[in-house]
Each structure stands twice: as C-alpha cells, then as structure tokens.
Design a protein around this nucleic acid. Structure first.
Length: 868
RNA sequence: GGGGGCGUGGCGGAAUGGUAGACGCUGCGGACUUAAAAUCCGUUGACCGUUAAAGGUCGUGAGGGUUCAAGUCCCUCCGCCCCCACCA
C-alpha cells in the first residue's frame, strides 16, 4: 500500500516557516506588561563571517529557554547583536585592502542569514552592532559619564612596541616567543600615556556581590573571586636612612621583627634616589635587563632569584634594625606598594633570595612540639606554619595565626598604637587599561588642548565619528593618528588649537553595556530610557562560553554598578543566572610522530587510521573544533543535510549544556530518525484518525490509563528539567520516552487511535517538542488542524490525578540486598506492605531459617528485612 | 604553590541515600525486500550456571568508614581537566 502521508523534508518546511514567522512578526517582543518578564540572552558574537558549532550550541540553548518561557506565559526579550569592533577587521584591511567597515558589514549580513536558518526566536527589530554610530555614540557618552564620576583617568603604562613596524601591538599580535606577528621583531615595552577605568574603586563590592549570584556556576564565582584577589594584612611604613617614607604591604605583619632586608621592584620610583654612587651601574644594568624581559620570561616557573643591592638601608620601625634595600624583579610594581619587607625565615621567596645573596635569616616563629628548633643559619626552607612568636618584642609569646588574639591581630594593634602602620586590604585587581592604538574601535571622546589640558568632547558633539578614508599599512602610528584633518580640532573650552585623542577603546567596553541597550535599542535620544531598562533588566538567563568567566562578566558587573550609581539603572547585578556551555569537540586525527593533524577525508580507513604520507598509525581523540586541526564540522553542511531541527536536537541531547560535546555523525543520524518517527506518528494518526472521536470515557481502559500517565509524567519531568538548571539532555530523553509510549500504546490496542487520550498524547508530544524543534512541530501542528502557531500555545500542565497508580512495584530487600519485587496495591499501608512482603516467595526463600531482627518499610518503595 | 571540578557499560550519558546503567549511539540476531536503503522486532555490564531455563556472584578510579540500605554522605589515596600564580 502506498504511504498515505508525506515524508519529512526539513529543507522544505524549515525555510517556509522561517519566512512565515518573519512576516507574522511571531518573534516580536511582547509589550504586555501584565505578564511577568523574562530576558534570555546569548553572548553576542564577533562577526567573523562564519557561524561555527560553538555558536549553534550557545544560541540553541538560549532559544529553547526563550521559547519555553514564551509558552509558559512570560513576555520574553530574546535579542541578538554584533560585537563588531576589533582587530580581525583591521587585519583584513591590512592584508586584503578591504575597509574594516565593509568587511564587518558583509560578515554581519552573512552570519545573520546563517542564524536565521537555525530558527532562533530573535526579535530582529532590536538588532545592534557596536561599530555603528547609533551605538558607539552612547559608548562614548558612557565614557564621559565615567570621566565625570572620576572613574576614567590617564597615566603612563607599558605597551607592546614593534621596533620595525614602529607600531603598537595588541597582546594577540605577540606570539609565544615574544615576536611581532607581522615583522617578527622581538617586541619591546614602551611607556605611553593611556586611559584607565577605575574598576578598583568597586573591587570590594564586586567581590561581596558575588554572594548574590546564586544562579551562577560556582567555578565562575571562584574565578572572579581569585581574580579580584583580596588579601588582608597591614601597611607598614619603613623609613630610609635619609628619612624618606617607604611603605610596604604585608599579610604577615606579625613577622615584622624578622624582616632583615627590603626589596623594591626595579621600577619603583625611589630606586634612583636610593642608589648609591658605587651601586649605580649595577642597579641601572639590572633595571634595563628587567625592562627588556618579556612577560613570559618574568613569570617563568622556578626562576632563580636575581637582584641587586641599592647601597642604601632602611630602618625597621619596630626594632630600629638597619636593613639593606635591594631591588629584584620578583617584586612587582603593580601590586601593593611595589616594595616589600623581606622575612626570609617565614617566606619561601624571601628565603631563596636571602640564601642566594647571603642575607641574614632571623627566626621569629618557633614551631612547637616535636619539631626541631628552627635556626636561621641552618634551615633549608622557610617556615610558614604554626608556632609561637619569638624575638618579637611586644608580641613575643603570642601564638602565630590570623585568629582573634593571635599574632597578626596583636601586631596590627601594636602598629596602630605606635603609628607605624595600620590594617589594610589589598586587591590583585588592577585598573582597566582601555586605550588601544588602533583604528577599528570607539574613538575616545577627548581632546588635548595645549592651554586647557584634557577636555571632554561636549555631549552635543557626539558621536566622534571614525573617519572613513583611512590608510591601512600595519606600519607606523595608528591610522587615526595619521589623519591630520581629523586630529586637529578647536578646543571646546578656549577655541584654541587642539588635538583629538587618537586612541580607541578596548572592545570589552562595547560588550559591557549592550545588554542594557537591547531593552531600548532604537533610542536616539539617550543610551537607554531608564524606565525601559528597568522593565527588562537584569538579564534572567545569560548563556555563553566559559572563556568569558572573568573579563567580560566582571567588566559588565562593573559597568552595571557605575550606571546604577549614576542613576541610570536600578539593578546591582546584570545577570541573574549564568549558564556556561561546554565547547563542541570534533574527532581529531593526529600523527604522534610528526605532531601533525590529518584531515579525516585523507584517511582511507577510519577504523584503522593511518597517515597517508608516512603510514604511521594516527591518534584519535576529541578536541575543540578548529581549522588547524581539521576537526571542524560546518553548520551549513549539517543544516543542508538534516535541517536545523535535527542539529538542535542533537546538540541538546548529546551532552548536558555545561559539559563538552563530542560531535558524532551517527548520533546526528539518530536524532534525524527520532524526528522522522515523530513525524510518522503524528501523520499516521492524522491520516487514520477516526472521523468521530469517541466521547471521553468515564472509565479509562488500562492502556489508556497507562498512556495518560506517560503523558503527564513527560509534562512533569520536562517542565522540571526546564526549571533553573536546564537539564536539556534529559528533557530530550523524556520526549523520546513519550514518543515511545504513544507508539507502544498504538501497537497494543487497535482502538487506541480513536481514544481522546491518544489525541492528547499526540498533541502534547508536539507541544512539548516545540521549543526544541520549532519547525517540524509547527508543520505537524498545522497538519493537526490548527491555524494558530504552536509557539503561541500554552505550555501543557501536568495533572497530578493522572500520575496516580493503582499498583506499585515493591522492592523486597534482605539485609539491604534487593532480592526481588512484588506488585502491590498503591493504597496499602505500612503494616500491609510488611505483611505482603513477608509472605512473598522471595522473602521466604531468603529469610528461611533465620530470625527477623528488624524490618524497614519505605511506603511506595521497598521493604527491607534485617535478619540474623 | 593556591583554588575549583571530574572519575559510572564498547561510546555519549541517566539515577530527591532506596531495583545502578534511563534515553540514545554502536554491535549482534531476526522480519520485510529479488537485493539494498529505509522501517519494524529482539538483544547488548562482567563472570558463574544450565540443552534451555530458573538462578547466583561481582560491579560506579582505589582503600577505609557511617547507615537497615552508599554512585550519592564522611576520611585517606590515585588519575585526569580547568582557572590563578615570584601577589608579599
């Protein structure tokens, strides 16, 4: 017999529905404020031009969440935009002579089409691109807000300098050996005056408020905590013999009596004045060597300590001891005061330094118990453990430790009482250097006037537009600095000759506020209307890669707090819940002898992979997809072959969202088969459905009851999987179970298809599947005789009465081991359960000849006999 | 060095302290077909056992512990992954 129903052709139905939804404005953001709001956001992409599987995974996860919330009666904001400034566009300009704006615009157009092919429920009316003046105008305006608040300032800082091309390089343009990506020259450090945002002013709040982020993965919170890096201790002021103050920060002020020398960073401003004539040459040589060292050299593991004496001494405030002042690159100018008191007996780094340069080691913490007494002359490593303070004047005899009444607290008390210092906290977090000596970014809206100094561009003059007709060579100063007619302006204050700031902003600035702009994306009067922002923010669910765990998320939190303090938004934190999805990995073939990757299509037999060139056996493993490893899978290929719904289902089912996902073609096939089964199940029902449906029976048959139960279990389980933690993989497996249950019910009974329960099953399955596979479900929904979109249907509710069972399976255990099961009526009470269990054949077999000592009855679950 | 996470069949992965391995992939056997594809049915942790069953033993990285009962809770150890790191 001919198949009465058409077959499932995703490549036809998917584009059809995509264009219908678009013309119906199905995905327009609802303005119905009687509904609760839900803001679902994926981290917006850099428009590289090609969508990769990582994007597909990210956006699919967020789309399912947005669609479910929509069906559950929320008004949902689900926007998309482009993080469109950045280096690759400028590289394209240098390499291929195409203007960054043109390159970016083309890429956006291409990626937008690819995204649309995935069936994502974006409100495209709110699309934004950070490189467009109607967006970056407000980025500039926000910068001026920071400036006005005293949170933007200028100071000198080191940049990567290419001495051949005479240009500044981004960190990404410096390779692992410290060479320029273009010229190959060894990159130098060069000081330039640059703009900073004062994120350190918010360090404590950024740290404290991590506790509010209950919907964030622990590890992201911990990473941010470590990044902020708070440590508590004291500031202690030493004096040089010449009388200059030389403050240090220490977490162990209690060991101050053991400080036998001091170390300054080579860049410390006092080094020059402290250096004696005899030491001048050695010190300057050392400083020059330190300056030339790359970051990689400076942070290399297990480096031997180096350093040089300045020739000067300082005085230890607590015991007036004369301590030599050294410089060494293990002390960093950017942390604390750039100077330390060295306590070699109790700090391993100081110990190594002291041993190398024969400096005095003085023990001030003596461990108790069986420990041998420590001796500064003979000890082989620093003692950082517990003990009793010795040779420590005022705190002698105090137990070492940070607790109340212990050495650290006592020492701080003593310092404060004598004016030697005070308790202090220090943060590892540094202010954010935002200046980039590049073209393709937001121009910093500042003007340098010879007589007025640094003057902000008046708000009325925003945006400061990027000039168009720029030349890109990759050499010399940034393209903007070469644009004389753009650079030279009148000072807004004195009208005298002035120059524009030619640096642009770090692109992380653009992405630190885009989630606000989506709430009011078309506003040309303000960055955002506070009323609109407060209606949508904070983002309820943010989804993106773990690689943004620190910088992007921390900067966004910082911006939110500053905008709150400027009265622009109400929320303290921008992202209530955060999901960091795992990466997508591809099957990788690598020759272990040559360390070269081999494309799969060059391998003759994938079951026995050998290198076509050498014949070496290849290693096979999963690794993050990348071009250089030939292990990528192009979304376009998958869409063309199976359609978006299959790709979405596969990605959702294959692994939990936060775990890495191994791409496997066989599993993709499996998902395609599942959608085909659903298609046939629904279409067969529609073709063979009885023309007169039987009235709802008062007494359901057993198979009807079982099916109804399966339906409502599926609703319950899937709804739970979609709450909070988004266990999308198990949600998909529940959909499969329901599909299987419907299929089984049909096979079990000829009359089942006429039952209203069967119809309920079919329609529920389609509705529950809709957020996951939006196209096939829309098509099937229409075939089922509905005219309104399935995506506007209410989410099914689980009926508790349907879950009730007449009989349960009772597990019989003896001594905690499962020995069998019996069927019992669900209504049975504890005593009855015990009785039935005891009488059961299994129980009798294992209890025979023994005495029951104790019986545990867990109603609805099991009976366990403890016997002797 | 500091911090966080993970370890379950051939594979991806399920399991509010209560029948470990749901769901899927793969493999194997079968039906349909001239044949293949597709589809459908059965089976798929290891070992012992039997003609076949029935049945039994073991099993969640290793070892201890708590409990009537442990993948799950506690302790020790091993292995892998990630973040930070000469941060005073």
């Amino acid at each position: 017999m001919e198949n009465p129903t058409s077959s499932y052709t995703p490549t036809e139905i998917e584009p059809k529905w995509q264009s219908q939804w678009q013309s119906q404005q199905l995905d327009a953001t609802s303005e119905d404020t009687t509904k609760p709001k839900f803001y679902a956001l994926s981290m917006f992409p850099y428009p590289s031009g090609n969508l990769h599987m990582g994007h597909v995974r990210n956006y699919t996860i967020t789309d399912v969440i947005a669609r479910v919330k929509q069906m559950q009666g929320f008004r949902v904001l689900h926007p998309m935009g482009w993080d469109a400034f950045g280096l690759p566009a400028e590289n394209a300009a240098i390499d291929r002579g195409i203007h960054p704006a043109q390159w970016t615009t083309q890429n956006i157009a291409q990626m937008r089409e690819q995204l649309k092919r995935l069936g994502l429920s974006y409100d495209w009316d709110r699309e934004l691109a950070t490189c467009l003046p109607d967006y970056y105008r407000w980025t500039q305006w926000l910068f001026l807000q920071f400036y006005d608040a005293g949170l933007a300032y200028r100071r000198e800082a080191a940049v990567n300098w290419d001495p051949i091309d005479q240009t500044v390089l981004a960190n990404e343009q410096v390779d692992a050996e410290g060479r320029s990506w273009r010229s190959g020259a060894i990159v130098e450090k060069k000081l330039l005056s640059q703009w900073f945002l004062k994120i350190t002013a918010y360090a404590e709040e950024l740290l404290q408020d991590l506790q509010k982020l209950k919907g964030w993965p622990d590890r992201v919170r911990v990473m941010q905590e470590n990044w902020i890096g708070k440590s508590t201790g004291a500031r202690v002021v030493f004096h040089t013999e010449a009388g200059q103050e030389l403050p240090v920060f220490t977490t162990r002020p209690d060991t101050l009596w053991g400080a036998t020398f001091m170390v300054l960073s080579p860049e410390h401003p006092l080094v020059e004045s402290l250096t004696t004539a005899e030491q001048k040459e050695a010190v300057e040589t050392y400083q020059a060597a330190a300056a030339a060292k790359s970051d990689i050299d400076r942070t290399a593991e297990d480096r031997e300590k180096t350093g040089v004496w300045t020739g000067s001494y300082a005085v230890n405030p607590v015991n007036s001891a004369k301590v030599p002042i050294w410089i060494a690159d293990y002390v960093l100018m950017g942390y604390g005061t750039g100077a330390i008191m060295a306590v070699p007996a109790h700090d391993q780094r100081d110990f190594e330094f002291a041993r190398k340069f024969n400096l005095n080691v003085k023990v001030v913490v003596q461990p108790e118990g069986e420990q041998e007494l420590l001796n500064g002359e003979t000890m082989t490593e620093a003692w950082a453990g517990e003990g009793i303070m010795v040779r420590s004047g005022a705190i002698d005899g105090t137990p070492a430790g940070k607790g109340a009444g212990q050495s650290v607290a006592k020492a701080i008390e003593f310092l404060e009482a004598n004016g030697f210092g005070e308790a202090q906290a220090n943060y590892r977090l540094r202010d954010w250097l935002i200046s980039r000596q590049r073209y393709w970014g937001v121009p910093i809206p500042m003007i340098h006037c010879e007589s007025c100094g640094v003057v902000p561009v008046p708000e009325a003059d925003l945006p400061v537009l990027l000039p168009d007709n720029v030349e890109f060579s990759g050499r010399g100063p940034s393209p903007l600095a070469k644009m004389t007619e753009w650079v030279e302006v009148d000072c807004p204050l004195c009208q005298g000759p002035a120059r524009r700031e030619t640096d642009t902003m770090d692109t992380f600035i653009d992405s630190s506020w885009y989630f606000f702009r989506f709430a009011d994306a078309r506003n040309d009067q303000a960055a955002v209307d506070p009323a609109k922002v407060n209606q949508w923010l904070p983002v309820d669910q943010y989804v993106g890669g773990i690689e943004h765990a620190i910088l992007h998320l921390l900067y966004s939190r910082f911006f939110t707090k500053v905008l709150r303090d400027r009265g622009l938004v109400n929320c303290d934190e921008p992202f209530t819940r955060l999901l960091t999805q795992g990466m997508v990995q591809g099957m990788t073939y690598k020759n272990p002898n040559t360390n070269k990757y081999v494309p799969a299509d060059q391998i003759a037999d994938l079951n026995n992979p050998v290198d076509p060139n050498s014949g070496d056996r290849l290693e096979v493993f999963y690794e993050k997809m990348s071009k250089s490893k030939y292990n990528g899978v192009d979304p376009q290929t998958v869409l063309a072959k199976y359609g978006a719904d299959t790709a979405r289902m596969f990605i959702l089912f294959k692994a939990p969202p936060e775990k890495d996902l191994e791409w496997d073609d066989a599993d993709v096939e499996g998902q395609f088969r599942f959608l085909n089964r659903v298609w046939r199940l629904v279409m067969d029902y529609w073709a063979d459905r009885p023309q007169t449906t039987t009235a709802p029976a008062l007494n359901l048959s057993k198979s009807e009851k079982d099916l109804r139960r399966a339906i409502h279990i599926a609703i319950k389980e899937i709804s739970e999987d979609l709450e909070g933690d988004y266990q999308l993989n198990t949600a998909v497996s529940e959909l499969m179970k329901l599909s299987n249950a419907i299929s089984d019910a049909r096979k079990a009974s000829d009359t089942m298809m006429a039952s209203p329960i069967y119809q309920e099953g079919i329609e529920t399955l389609v509705k529950l599947l809709a957020p996951f596979a939006p196209h096939i479900t829309e098509e099937l929904w229409q075939h089922l005789g509905h005219s309104e979109s399935i995506h506007l249907q209410p989410w099914p509710e689980s009926d508790p009465s349907a879950l009730v069972v007449d009989e349960i399976t009772l597990v019989i255990q003896v001594m905690g081991k499962t020995r069998g099961t019996i069927q019992v009526t669900a209504a049975a009470d504890k005593a009855t359960l015990e009785q039935l269990a005891l009488e059961s054949e299994v129980a009798q077999r294992y209890i025979a000849g023994k005495t029951i000592k104790k019986t545990i009855v867990v109603p609805g679950k099991l009976v366990n006999f403890v016997v002797v």
